[in-house]
Amino acid sequence: MADWIETSSGNRISRSAHISGSDRIVINGNATIHPGVQIHGDVQLLANKSSTDTTTATLGKFCYLRPNCQIIPPVLQECSDSDSTTYHGPVTIGAYTIIGSNTVVKSANVGNRVLIEDDCVLENLSIIYECCVIRKGTVVPPKTIIPPYSEVSGVPGKDFRISSLNSCYKRLIEIEAKELQILGS
């Protein structure tokens, strides 16, 4: 039996990936999900009266998830003495976004054309706008907003740094995501 499931929309999903609540996850096509990737789609969403949408995680087209990365919908309400349920919000990963090995994403939103390198932690409810590069080992603190065209590196309290990124990265990250989808690594 092949190690990969290939769908008609061009998605390539490893059989060893741990995708829970797959009926509540939307993958928009041409995405690659490597072995060991965890997508936690089976979480309890905080009730929203205005919306009946139960989607917990959305992946844009040409998303590339490297081995052992985790996508966890952001926690909106922790469990308490009266209620043992933890409530989450939906997570959206934009198109042409690459997520590195062993990276943990708890963000509310990751924009289009974002490159996240290996061993990063995007803490709860952080927002990454379009065309950003998160360097290896970076910890993005909770509720932090990363503006577009930013390069982020380091750990808060130690060497955390946000600097501007050249405008050509919009095209470069898009080509990178497309080539990774073709080449596989």
Binding site: I175, E179, I182, G184, S185
Partner: peptide, 18 residues
Amino acid sequence: NILKGIPTSILTSNTAVS
């Protein structure tokens, strides 16, 4: 066609297309 723009020495055997 992005595949045509990738040099042969870079192509891998990881995917059916490549």
